[in-house]
Amino acid sequence: MDKILVGLKRVVDYNVRIRVKTDGSGVETDGVKMSINPFDEIALEEALRIRERGEASEVVVFSIGPSDAQQQLRTGLAMGADRAILVEAADAVDPLSAAKVITKLIEAESPELVILGKQAIDNDNNQTGQMVAALWDRPQATFASKVELADGKATVTREVDAGLETIEVDLPAVVTTDLRLNEPRYVKLPDIMKAKKKPLDTTPIADFGVAPDDAFEVSEYAPPPQRSKGVMVEDTAALVAALKDKGLI
């Protein structure tokens, strides 16, 4: 297999406590730490392991986002990706438009495998990978916790509500990652230096001829309803009594 394409989305770091702006116009992102979406980091790690096993020759990372997403692509290159593509978009891109752009990247790059995170932890949409597979008319193996490649096929174990489901898909295909697929490596300082020399191409999203879809209009952002503060009990007897009181046990 020659090429694996991996998507890296720039998102607010998962450790940041998200705050809704007081005027309800959005979420506070000024001066907040930004990182690679954790699921995408897992996607890249998987691609690198496949290449390191000799089952792929090249790992290409891309991001659709603002010019600052170069930072996340550089981190991806430092982790070990061979080259990077930034599809520069000043405004947020909806999942369908992102999927259309990715389909065009696929046309240009002809990967055997596209690995994406199952969801981005900002909008939690969980759509893009499935949409890419649909538009590309290829198989999808979502929520993967294990991927094995052989003879032009991928055998993928998926985390589903019932437990673990295994499916077999012909390549090329789209895989989306779940948390337990792997544990991403740490980036070492010399790798960051080396990554500076790796190619990173930037193309404006306008060049892809994909019109943004503005059918969804967010009229308000609100903080979630807060649960009122409860009581602390002194000991087990008080706990059991409180539960019996409420008729819960």
């Binding site: 979420v27 909008n123 059918a215 903080p223």
Partner: peptide, 18 residues
């Protein structure tokens, strides 16, 4: 018009569909 959570439920958005 619908409500849906984002950011792991730390914000609730009101979305109007065309």
């Amino acid at each position: 018009t619908f409500k849906r959570p984002i950011y792991a439920g730390n914000a609730i958005t009101t979305v109007r569909v065309r």
